[in-house]
């Protein structure tokens, strides 16, 4: 494995993706809604309209009190704010790296096929393994970086709009750190591996994006649905879950690197 070549391809991929409005636009719009829009509206509503929290009903009312710190139990608005910020949005947050990864990964290999640039790479000394690793890396690193930026923005928004309500800075919790630093990277890598594998067979970006999404979304749906529950559990559980995904990543990467053959990719080219 020649890392210089891997880096060269990754650098190229990232620069290309960032200069493509088709990729950049969804990356700006979707997180803007999930990471900025929802929490601001939610927290402002709780602060400005005192009755809002009682209207939120079951989920918050039934939320186990043991999962909330004592400062969040003081009134309904605080409870609603804490449950929303710490538990409810965790599921949404998982969608950010998944979406980013799927879009970038589908663009990088299947998109190169569609734009007829891939064959040029296949003639160079770049090995099959280097190509696959570069393609996975050039989706994984931006997705991770992007997710962490979103996390920082979310944290800042909670500090600005949530802290006055709560009387203190209460975010991020330890579980969120574990989610961001361990579980999200591990799940993103799995998603990207699947999309890259699909991309090797797909004819173009749209197809790879669609098929990749169809495989990945149910998986993520399950994880996202469980995310709120997951965040209630102990940090250990999150760490273990991340370890399980990491193991799946290793298996998946080995399978892809071993099964990828450039000669098979070209058979699909016109």
């Amino acid at each position: 494995m020649d890392w210089g070549r891997v880096r060269a391809v990754m650098g190229k991929d990232v620069r290309e993706a960032l200069s493509n409005p088709q990729i950049v636009m969804p990356l700006i719009v979707v997180p803007l809604v999930i990471v900025v829009g929802y929490p601001i509206i939610y927290l402002l509503a709780l602060r400005l309209t005192p009755g809002a929290a009682s209207g939120l009903g079951g989920f918050i009312g039934d939320f186990p009190r043991s999962a909330l710190p004592s400062f969040a139990l003081a009134n309904t608005a605080r409870r609603a704010a804490y449950v929303g910020v710490v538990y409810l949005f965790a599921g949404f947050f998982l969608l950010v790296p998944v979406m980013v990864s799927t879009v970038i990964a589908a663009n990088s290999l299947a998109g190169e096929k569609e734009r007829r640039t891939l064959e040029g790479l296949l003639y160079t000394p770049l090995s099959d393994a280097e190509l696959v690793v570069a393609k996975i890396g050039s989706s994984f690193l931006p997705a991770l970086g992007f997710t962490w930026i979103c996390f920082a923005i979310y944290t800042a928004i909670i500090a600005v709009f949530g802290a006055p309500l709560m009387g203190r800075v209460f975010f991020p919790t330890l579980n969120w750190w574990a989610l961001m630093l361990l579980l999200l990277p591990a799940t993103s890598l799995l998603v990207i591996s699947i999309v890259v594998m699909v991309s090797a067979k797909a004819r173009g970006f749209q197809e790879a994006n669609a098929i990749g999404g169809a495989i990945v979304l149910p998986l993520i749906g399950v994880v996202a649905a469980q995310a709120s529950g997951l965040m209630v559990l102990s940090t250990t559980v999150i760490v273990v879950a991340a370890a399980v995904f990491a193991l799946a990543d290793v298996v998946m990467l080995r399978v892809i690197v071993r099964s990828f053959r450039r000669a098979r990719v070209v058979s699909y080219l016109s």
């Binding site: 210089g4 391809v9 493509n20 007829r116 064959e119 040029g120």
Partner: peptide
């Protein structure tokens, strides 16, 4: 590493001419 190929493939349209060549030069080590 000993061979160069020109076929009816595309260039990286979003990159400059120079960057296209530099990328391939780096792939050749």
């Amino acid at each position: 590493p000993l061979v160069g190929v020109q076929t009816d493939t595309s260039l990286y349209d979003r990159m400059s001419a120079l960057d296209n060549l530099v990328l391939f030069g780096r792939l050749y080590g």
